[in-house]
Design a protein around this nucleic acid. Structure first.
Lengths: 303, 303
DNA sequence: GGAATTGATACTCCCTGGGCATCGATGATA
DNA sequence: TATCATCGATGCCCAGGGAGTATCAATTCC
C-alpha cells in the first residue's frame, strides 16, 4: 500500500485495474502493460486491500468483475481519460497555444490601435480567449498590481513600480467641435480662440495626467477653460459634442473613426498630448500568450 | 519519474501539487501533507520535469502559479474530488447499500408475489436501482446464463444447470370463464365439463413445461382442448376471456386481483399446476444487493 | 548589515514495485 | 480417467526511488 497522503491507492493501481477489468485476463493485461503477471496480481491485490473490497472474482480459469469492480471501472474511465489529456493540454498552455488573457483598455485604446492589434493576435493565436474590460487608467494600474489583469492599454502618468510599458501612441490632440460651431470653417484652430466655448471633459481621477495636461495647455494659452460636463467613458463625450453641449479633445487617430456630424480640427500652439501604452507586470516575465500579445502591440506601434 | 505505464506522474504528484498550489507555500503544504519540505520540493520538480512544463514560479520569498500551473490546478480539482469519493462509494456498492439489479419476471409473477417483494425490498434498500423487464421463462433462463440479468421470476421446467432457485408459489390452477358462460352458476368445475369451451393459451415455446401440464390435465380428464387463441403476455388473456373468446387457466393468487367482469372457478380433479420461482446464477455467489432481494423473496414465500 | 525565513541540494536509508521461478487449481484432451 | 496446458497466486531477490536529516543560497525584514 502506498503511503497515505489522501488516497489509499496510486494511479498505477487504477490503470492496472482498468486493464484487467477490460480484458478480464491477468496475463494479457500484464502483457499490454509491459509488466510481468505476478506484479500485476500483486498490485490488484493491493488495490483490493486498500479499498477493503473485492473487485474481481477469479478462479484459475475465469476472471469476472464484482459489482464493486464494475462500479470502479465505470468511475475510472472518465477520470483516467481526463488525466490522459492533461500533459498535452498543459504543454499547449505553456506554449501559449491555448489560454486566457485578461485585458483592460481605455476608450481611446479601443478607438485607435486595439482593434487592429486584437485582430492580428486572434488570427495567430485562436486558442487564446481574451477577456476584455474597459477601465480607466488608475483602476488598470491597481488591477495590474493586484494580478487581476494580465495587461492594460492605458494612459500613463509617469512610470509605475513593477509595471513595464511599451508606447503605442503619442499624439497632440485636436478639438472636436459641434457642427454649428463658429470656427467650423477654419482648417485648424488655437486654444485661445476657444475661450468662450464650453468643454466636455472627464473626471480628473480617471486620468489625472492627461487632465492636468489639458489644463496646462489652456494655461499656457492664457485662457481659462469653461468646463460644461464631465463624462465617462470618453466615447460618450462625442455624443455630447454632437448634441452641441460643447467641444472636447480627441487625438487624430481617434478622429478618423468619427462620423461627419462632428468636426475635428487640429490645434496650433499649445495642445494636450495623449499617450497610450500597453503595460504589464515586469515580474514574473510575461508567459508566452501574453508575450505574443505584447509583441503584436509593439509591432503595430512600429509598423 | 515513475515507471511509465501511461501517465508520466502519480496521484502523489498531483495531490502534492494541489496542496502547494492552494497554499503557495512549500513548507506549509509539506506540513499539511505530513512530509518534510525537501521531499515536497523534489516531487514538484519531478512533476514539472515529467510534464516538461514549469508549474510554479518560485523565489525564496514568493511562490506563484504559472498559467500552466493554474490550468493544472483547475483540471485537478474535479478529478481528485471524484477519486476521493471512490472508496466510500465502492464500499457502499460492496455492502449492497447502492447498486443496480436487473430483474426479469413473468406476468404471473407481477400479478402475484412480485409487487409485495419489491415494496419491502425497496423500503429496506432505497439505494438499489431495479431494472425490471417482463420476459418469458425461456428467455429469462438464457439471459441468466449470459449474465444479462441478475435474477428472474419465472416458471421452471425442471432444473437448469448453474441456476439456483427458490420456490415462491405452487398452485393448482383454476379456470377463468367469460361472465356469460353456461357453468357460471357452479362453485367449482371439472375439466371434463369444459370439453366444448374454447381456451386461450400462450405460445408453447414461452413456457413449455406449463403448456405440457395443461395438455396433460386435459388428457387425464379424457377431453381434447379446443384452443381458440394463443396470446402473450398472459395478462392479455384476461381481456380475451372478458371478450368472450374463451376460457383460460389462472392461479388463485392471480385471480384475486382480477375484476368481477370475469369468473374464476376452482378445478376439481386434474388441473395444471403453476410454479413460480426466483432463480439466479449459483456462481459466483450472489452479491449483497441480490442476496437481499432473494432473501426478501424467500421470506415472502415463507410468511 | 545581521538575522530569519524560504526553497533547493547532498547524502543516506529502506520501503516497495518488479522480475524470475514455481505452485496449486481448473478445464481440456485423448 | 490420466495427462497436459493454462491460469492466477506466492516466495524470493534486487534495485529504483521516495522520504528524512543536515545544510546551502537567496531574499527580505528589522
Amino acid at each position: 500500500m502506498p503511503r497515505e497522503y489522501q488516497f489509499p491507492f496510486e494511479l498505477r493501481h487504477l490503470v492496472y485495474f482498468r486493464e484487467v477489468a477490460r480484458r478480464l485476463h491477468f496475463r494479457k493485461a500484464a502483457e499490454a502493460l509491459a509488466i510481468a503477471q505476478p506484479a500485476l496480481s500483486r498490485q490488484i491485490a493491493q488495490l483490493e486491500a486498500a479499498l477493503g473490497v473485492r473487485l474481481l472474482n477469479r478462479s484459475s480459469r475465469r476472471v469476472e468483475l464484482t459489482p464493486a469492480g464494475a462500479a470502479l471501472l465505470e468511475r475510472l474511465e472518465p477520470v483516467l481519460a481526463a488525466l490522459s489529456r492533461v500533459p498535452a493540454d498543459l504543454k499547449a498552455v505553456a506554449e501559449g497555444r491555448v489560454g486566457r488573457l485578461r485585458v483592460a483598455f481605455t476608450g481611446l485604446a479601443m478607438a485607435t490601435v486595439l482593434p487592429d492589434i486584437l485582430r492580428g493576435f486572434h488570427r495567430r493565436f485562436p486558442g487564446i480567449r481574451l477577456e476584455l474590460n474597459e477601465s480607466p487608467t488608475a483602476l488598470q494600474l491597481a488591477a495590474l498590481q493586484a494580478g487581476e489583469i494580465d495587461c492594460g492599454f492605458f494612459h500613463p502618468d509617469g512610470p509605475s513600480p513593477g509595471i513595464d510599458t511599451t508606447l503605442l501612441l503619442r499624439e497632440r490632440n485636436g478639438v472636436l467641435l459641434p457642427a454649428d460651431h463658429p470656427l467650423r470653417r477654419k482648417g485648424s484652430v488655437r486654444l485661445r480662440e476657444l475661450a468662450g466655448t464650453p468643454f466636455v471633459l472627464f473626471p480628473r481621477a480617471n486620468n489625472p495626467g492627461f487632465y492636468d495636461r489639458v489644463l496646462a495647455a489652456f494655461a499656457s494659452s492664457g485662457v481659462a477653460p469653461r468646463i460644461a460636463e464631465e463624462v465617462w467613458p470618453r466615447s460618450n463625450g462625442v455624443g455630447l459634442v454632437r448634441a452641441g453641449v460643447g467641444a472636447t479633445f480627441v487625438s487624430p487617430s481617434e478622429a478618423r473613426n468619427l462620423p461627419p456630424t462632428v468636426i475635428f480640427r487640429k490645434l496650433l500652439g499649445p495642445a494636450p498630448v495623449s499617450t497610450l501604452v500597453v503595460g504589464w507586470r515586469s515580474q514574473p516575465p510575461p508567459p508566452p500568450a501574453l508575450a505574443a500579445l505584447l509583441d503584436a502591440a509593439a509591432r503595430h506601434a512600429a509598423g
